[in-house]
Structures are given as C-alpha cells and as structure tokens.
Computed example of a mutant assay.
Amino acid sequence: MTYPALTRAKSTAAAIFLVATLGLTACGPSTSNFPGQPTGTGGPNNPTGERQRESIFGEEGLKLFGGSSDDAAGSGIGVNSFLWRASLDTISFMPLASADPFGGVIITDWYRDPNAENERFKITVYILDRRLRADGVKVAVFRQARDERGDWADARVAPATALQIENAILVRARQLRINTIEASERR
C-alpha cells in the first residue's frame, strides 16, 4: 500500500470512528426540551423528566433472597411463590425434568403408575402471574400408552385432568398463603 493510500485509509477509518462515536452519543439520555416540559427535564424517551434506574432484570431488578415486605409475590423468584411451591407439592410424586422459578415453568419426566404399567404421564406446569390468581397457573398433561408392539404411542388425555391438577395446585397455594399469614400474625 502506498503512502497516499495509507493516509486515505487512516482518514476513512477516523471518519467512521467519529460518526460511530457521535451516533452512540446520540443514544444517551436526552436533556433536550420535550413539548409541554420545562427546558432540560425531559425528552422523547422520558417525557416526565423522572430519573429511572435501568436494569436488564426489569422494573424490580433481580431478587435472589427475598424482596421487600410489600412484595405481593412473597419471594425473589419470578413468579408467585405460593403457586410455585404448591405446584411442586402437587406433582411431587413425579420425577422432575426441569424447573425454572424465574420463567415459571415446571416440566416432569415420564411417570408410570405401578398399577397401570401400560400408560405413562408427563406434566408441564406454567405459572403465568406474580399474583395468586385462579388464572395464574396452566397445566398441560401428556399421556402415552403401549401399543400392540410394546412401543409408546401418544394417547388422548381426558380434558378434565389438567383442570383437576390446576385446581389442586390452587387449593394448595391458598393453604400455603393462609399458613403464611397466620404465622406472621402470631409474631
């Protein structure tokens, strides 16, 4: 590469660096005036001008060992702790394949009842809310039965099965919540 070509390459690289730096600087918090706001207090991304703590873990941040006393969910996990514990209690007879307390998903491995050797079940529990609500839990039940060759084949599950498990989880969650309230009142 010749000296003039090298100089042009350096100039081009410096120009690209300058444009990138200015572009990234423009992504910072705005101190410009937004219509209806006093000068320097807001911007298009913050019309009220309030300083907010930003976190990649959401509004409440990451809580590993509990939260504040006014935490509606009662724990530092990502879902309602009563629904979480009730779900684990309700399906405790089945082997767990996966449990994600931040995403609210519990997946069991296949379970065979000793009294029914030709069928097996698998359950996935989805906890959908941080509040203890009837629609805060969803259960999916999968069933397989042995065919005439002895292989496992997907089989139909009675529609009421998932609903019965959801109701059992909700009853247990309410019991856990009542026990927690009574224990805190005794202190």
Rank of each mutant, 00 (worst) to 15 (best):
L88W: 11
W152L: 06
I56V: 03
D70N: 15
T21F: 14
F93G: 04
R112P: 01
R187C: 09
I123M: 02
L83D: 15
G103Q: 09
L83A: 12
S81E: 12
I178W: 11
R85M: 10
T2K: 11
I181Y: 14
D151S: 06
T48H: 00
L176D: 10
G78W: 04
T161L: 12
A9R: 01
L24H: 01
A173K: 10
D154Q: 12
S68F: 11
G76W: 08
I16V: 14
R112F: 00
T39V: 01
G103L: 03
R187E: 06
F34H: 12
G23W: 04
L176A: 13
A13W: 05
I169P: 03
L163Y: 06
E182L: 02
N118V: 02
R51I: 11
T12Y: 05
D89Y: 02
A9V: 07
F142D: 13
S68L: 13
K138S: 11
R8T: 11
Q52M: 06
T2A: 03
E50Q: 08
Q144C: 07
A145K: 14
Y3Q: 06
S68H: 14
T48I: 00
A134G: 10
D129T: 02
S30T: 07
A173M: 11
A183T: 04
N80W: 10
A86R: 08
P4H: 02
L22C: 10
I123T: 03
S32Y: 11
G42K: 02
T7P: 00
K10R: 14
I16E: 04
A173S: 13
K63F: 00
R133G: 00
V105R: 15
D71N: 10
Q144H: 06
G104D: 06
P38K: 12
N167M: 08
R156K: 09
A134H: 03
G23P: 04
F82D: 14
P95V: 06
P95I: 08
L132Q: 05
G150D: 13
M94P: 01
L96P: 00
E117M: 03
Q52I: 07
A97P: 00
A116I: 01
D113A: 01
Q37Y: 00
D129W: 00
Y3G: 03
P4Y: 07
I77E: 11
R133I: 13
A183D: 14
T12S: 09
Q52W: 12
G103W: 02
L62Q: 11
T7Y: 09
D147E: 07
G28V: 02
A15T: 09
A72R: 14
G40T: 08
V19W: 05
D70C: 12
N46K: 00
A97L: 11
S98K: 10
F34Y: 10
F82I: 02
T180W: 14
A86L: 03
G28A: 10
R131D: 03
Q175T: 06
A116R: 08
A168M: 08
F121Y: 15
T25A: 09
R146H: 04
A14S: 05
L170G: 05
V125I: 07
P95L: 06
S30E: 05
S87E: 12
E148A: 15
